[in-house]
Write a protein that binds this DNA or RNA. Sequence first.
DNA 1: CATTATATGTAAACAATGTCAACATTGCAT
DNA 2: ATGCAATGTTGACATTGTTTACATATAATG
Lengths: 207, 207
Amino acid sequence: MMKNNESTKKTLPYHHGNLKEALLQTALEIIDSEGLDTITLRDLTQRLGTSRSAVYRHFTSKEVLILGVIEKGYEQLNLLFTPIFQDRTHTVVERFDAMGRAYLNFAIEHPNLYRLLFGEMYRKEREEICDYKDETLATGLYALIGLLIEAQEEGIIVCENPIVQAATVWASIHGLASLLIDGHLLMSDNLEEIYRYSQNVLLKGLC
Amino acid sequence: MMKNNESTKKTLPYHHGNLKEALLQTALEIIDSEGLDTITLRDLTQRLGTSRSAVYRHFTSKEVLILGVIEKGYEQLNLLFTPIFQDRTHTVVERFDAMGRAYLNFAIEHPNLYRLLFGEMYRKEREEICDYKDETLATGLYALIGLLIEAQEEGIIVCENPIVQAATVWASIHGLASLLIDGHLLMSDNLEEIYRYSQNVLLKGLC
DNA sequence: CATTATATGTAAACAATGTCAACATTGCAT
DNA sequence: ATGCAATGTTGACATTGTTTACATATAATG
């Protein structure tokens, strides 16, 4: 009888295979679809067919597991955004628009994950685990800064501190995304109109 | 011996006096200072000297209690904002600035309360309890819309749909507040610079 | 191959918390 | 005064995160 009946490709090193990665992945899926406050270690482990305590062989606490999910979420997000920023076949303004739409769409399609990544959850603890500032979060921010510098060089926007400009742009879009997914915007129907107007205000205001 | 040894001014109607109001007020204070996820019914009732189950004589669940806190929070917030909007001794632009600063300061001084009011918490359930749309939340939003209409009439900004304009302005400031209190903004030190730049972008972009 | 050690998984138990049911007490109406 | 509704209390229960002691699989070592 085979030791492992689900896959013989790789030599699965331990009991479950790689429970740690499975925990992270499944936890991310649960949080994405059901929200952070409803995820349960018991439910999580039950889906993977292990006992509840198995988590503690890979993560010292539920909090640390979530921190891993956050890290994983950023990776996926960056994977989604990188091609947009690296695309040189479109103008700066077109890329600016594409970026904004991609960001907003991600928030709409993954509201729970978006709240986890850009909310306050475990904010203090994040820096302790790994270098989020330089590694994950800032990847998108730096790309935005680069885009703004490009726009400055082309004379599309005024030459001011691009970091301040990036913060302004990010705040505007993040605010829109947050209000939207949290149900505070009265007119969710004409979102397209609001988004266009916001972007126009930004582009005109940055001149 | 007196029935109530803490106050003889008012005829306290029932066992505790008015436990319902005290629960709301203390819960708000706890949430404001310690956050929503750390508040406990046991701790709350212990501070008021009652038993844990006493809550259920006034609220059907913890969630409903929090909804009451949210309502109370909006009342306090509106109490804070109303004079700024009603002030006629300053120009429109000055009031616009004062509004933005008051909003941002509130978020900074009461981050936990701010997250509760403008986050996703119990968003679906809010409309079921009372008419937040028309009563509480929108008070500030309507005031902002009125301010923008005033600015339109004075020719300071362009005459477009003031609701869309208000959403844009709110999103910008809310985004700044959120990123700030949730620790995502790299440069919290030069907040003044970012705020000013954001407001300038808005005013210029709305022309 | 046998043994040992390390890594991983499990079961049972505990504390904290929200909630409910049964009971007790207070205030008010009649 | 009596009865009733409102309010408060105690004990119990389910859920959940977590720990401890134990079990098992893999790797290392002789």
